[in-house]
């Protein structure tokens, strides 16, 4: 009996050791590119791609060049403004839509959900051709693409209601009913009861909405239309290294820009990670 127990314990220890080994290997693979990125951003001796990781000469040259020689500050400012506006407007849109579909029962609700499901199956980009023409008619492309992009990102953002609707579905409806019996209007139920309970999903929605514009490439590139002052960081930095000759000249500068974008976003994400995990595991599966 004891022998078997000992064997079990040894086996368990072995398998745990094995798992630790895998996790360490995985972590190294996961961190390696980021480590290289940071190192290369501090390299001063050359600006092109090289075959070693640790710089021979460390320094902030790339960061300084980024601010003095390119429009990086403008791109950064553009993206930040877009992200702030989008996170506010999109959160309001998504939460109203998901709340309405989850808590209220009205005629045409199922039909509405089906229509949005079908609309979501069209690739978003095909709407871009028309929207570009309309926006350029309004003068919101090129140098003015910031308001244009805000409009494009937020206007139909309510279609991404699935995750938060999944969350609202889990909040017990008997709470609503009790409040309704006590004479609260639907508006009061929303502000006094549902809102305080929904902190995780609100933070999740704000976080994803804020992060979206930092990574968007397709729409931003099309709307900015090669105008430097209208680009977001993604398009601007990609533009820095889009041709072979510019890649040779600007590669380390691109790394520096990448670090400057990634660090704040990563810190923000990590500090709110708890809510993100709650949102992903809660709402996303229940859909």
């Amino acid at each position: 009996m004891t022998k078997k127990h000992m064997g079990q314990k040894l086996k368990n220890r072995l398998s745990n050791g094995f798992i630790y080994a895998i996790l360490i290997v995985v972590s190294v693979i996961w961190l390696f590119p980021f480590f290289c990125l940071v190192c290369e951003s501090f390299r001063c001796e050359s600006s092109h791609q090289v075959g070693y990781i640790l710089p021979r000469q460390w320094g902030f040259d790339n960061y300084i060049n980024l601010f003095t020689k390119t429009a990086f500050l403008t791109w950064y400012k553009n993206t930040f403004i877009i992200a702030v506006f989008v996170s506010v407007i999109q959160t309001l849109m998504v939460l109203t839509m998901s709340y309405t579909l989850s808590r209220l029962r009205f005629k045409g609700r199922k039909g509405l959900m089906n229509i949005m499901l079908v609309l979501g199956m069209f690739p978003g980009f095909i709407t871009m051709i028309v929207l570009y023409k309309i926006l350029s008619g309004m003068g919101l492309t090129g140098a003015n693409s910031v308001p244009g992009l805000i409009l494009v990102y937020t206007a139909s953002s309510a279609m991404g209601y699935y995750v938060s609707k999944g969350f609202f579905d889990t909040v017990s409806r008997s709470l609503d009913e009790a409040a309704r019996i006590d004479g609260a209007t639907r508006f009061q139920v929303l502000t006094k009861i549902i809102m305080p309970l929904s902190k995780p999903i609100i933070i999740y929605t704000i976080l994803t909405a804020f992060m979206g514009p930092w990574g968007d490439f397709m729409f931003a590139k099309y709307i900015a239309h090669n105008t430097t002052s209208g680009m977001n960081v993604a398009v601007g930095l990609q533009n820095l290294i889009s041709t072979p000759s510019s890649l040779t000249a600007n590669y380390t500068m691109f790394c520096a820009g990448g670090v400057l974008v990634a660090v704040p976003i990563t810190i923000l994400f990590m500090s709110l990670q708890r809510y993100y995990v709650e949102g992903v595991t809660g709402g996303a599966v229940k859909g």
Partner: peptide, 17 residues
């Protein structure tokens, strides 16, 4: 936390790199 790092860093940085 280490794994989630690739979700946190904007894709254009990690993928372009």
């Amino acid at each position: 936390g280490i794994l989630v790092l690739t979700s946190a860093v904007p894709q254009f940085v990690s993928l372009l790199y």
